[in-house]
């Protein structure tokens, strides 16, 4: 399973919601408290063995904030709270701590493939460093107290980003969503709550945070992830067996467009990206999975706009996107 899991699982993520015990939860209208939240986190994490960079949302240009969203290092909600929002991001980009989002701290660890346990251990390590210098709001009966009661308890959200093109093609996602909901889990689009499942990408995560241990939550999400991986892989094999020409034709068409098109909007890109990843995972297209997963970040809108500003000012983002894709596909065969 572990070898084939990467063909379906794009990433494993764990985030912990924490609040300082002595400050009100929401600091959007209390700049002095918001500043304190940043200073405490900075004091705990900066200057140790691991290096973190501090990003104050109000000092970042719009395009740079959105680049961080596209890298899944911060949320759209943090961008909307630009006056007080901040993020501490570890140099390897595997850990980010959002500050003054919905809670004082949102500790997030991200890893590739199916390994929520490793991501959770990294997040707990970061939590430990923060805890060494601050006290979090905790109640023995209700656990970690959070601004929204849907996060109370462990404050933990364990999520898998899954690429499920065949479950989508065979119209199984409706059933999947219903079954997953019955287990206290949820499926969402690529950018979380309320977002579209662009590129056939779905996030499966726990809905319930109270009354279960962190280990139980991770086990539940991993078990569902494994089941979805099995279902997706068996549908891929079925499709290749029953409709080999149709499948190869669809994948090659998308590959051709991605290699030679001169302009493409984000929605169309995501459609072809899904075929590209499917082709790479099935060994039907000459591109590596890592390169395809990198494209998912670097060919998004904000990255394309920034690329255009740096390399050919005046170029439209849709054209810059095609430059980025072409270069990737030429060099990552």
């Amino acid at each position: 399973m572990s070898d084939t899991a990467v063909n379906v699982v794009v990433s494993s993520r764990v985030r912990l919601a924490r609040n300082y015990f002595d400050l009100p939860f929401l600091n959007w209208e209390r700049p002095e408290n918001a500043r304190l939240c940043v200073e405490r986190a900075q004091a705990a994490l900066c200057g140790g063995d691991e290096s973190y960079d501090l990003y104050l949302m109000r000092d970042l240009p719009d395009v740079e904030r959105l680049k961080l969203v596209e890298k899944h290092l911060i949320s759209r909600d943090l961008v909307e709270r630009a006056d007080t929002g901040a993020a501490l991001i570890r140099h390897d980009r595997r850990v980010s701590v959002m500050i003054n989002e919905e809670d004082h701290l949102r500790i997030q660890a991200i890893g590739s493939g199916l390994d929520l346990e490793a991501a959770a251990n990294v997040a707990f390590g970061v939590e430990g460093r923060l805890e060494a210098v601050c006290t979090f709001s905790f109640d023995p009966q209700l656990g970690y107290l959070t601004s929204c009661p849907t996060n109370t308890g462990t404050g933990m959200r364990a999520s898998l980003m899954l690429h499920l093109p065949m479950l989508t093609r065979y119209k199984q996602m409706g059933n999947v969503n219903q079954s997953v909901a019955k287990l206290g889990l949820t499926t969402r689009g690529i950018y979380g709550e309320g977002s579209e499942a662009l590129g056939d990408l779905y996030q499966v995560s726990n809905q319930v945070t109270l009354g279960r241990t962190e280990e139980e939550i991770i086990e539940a999400v991993t078990a569902v992830g494994r089941q979805l991986i099995d279902m997706e892989l068996s549908l891929r094999a079925r499709c290749l067996k029953e409709q080999p020409l149709d499948l190869r034709d669809a994948l090659m068409r998308s590959y051709g467009l991605l290699r030679y098109a001169l302009q493409m909007d984000e929605k169309e890109f995501m459609l072809h990206w899904s075929h590209l990843r499917l082709g790479a995972a099935m060994g039907l297209l000459p591109v590596s999975l890592n390169a395809v997963d990198d494209l998912l970040t670097v060919a998004q809108d904000a990255h394309a706009r920034r690329y255009a500003q740096e390399t050919s000012p005046g170029e439209e983002a849709d054209a810059a996107r095609c430059d980025i894709i072409r270069k990737t596909l030429e060099t990552n065969v």
Binding site: P140, T154, G184, L210, G211
Partner: peptide, 18 residues
């Protein structure tokens, strides 16, 4: 909380100093 989570008693980790 009971209706959201199905339970209302924390079962997970505690702060180290608690």
């Amino acid at each position: 909380l009971q209706s959201i989570h199905g339970r209302a008693q924390h079962a997970g980790r505690r702060p180290a100093a608690f």
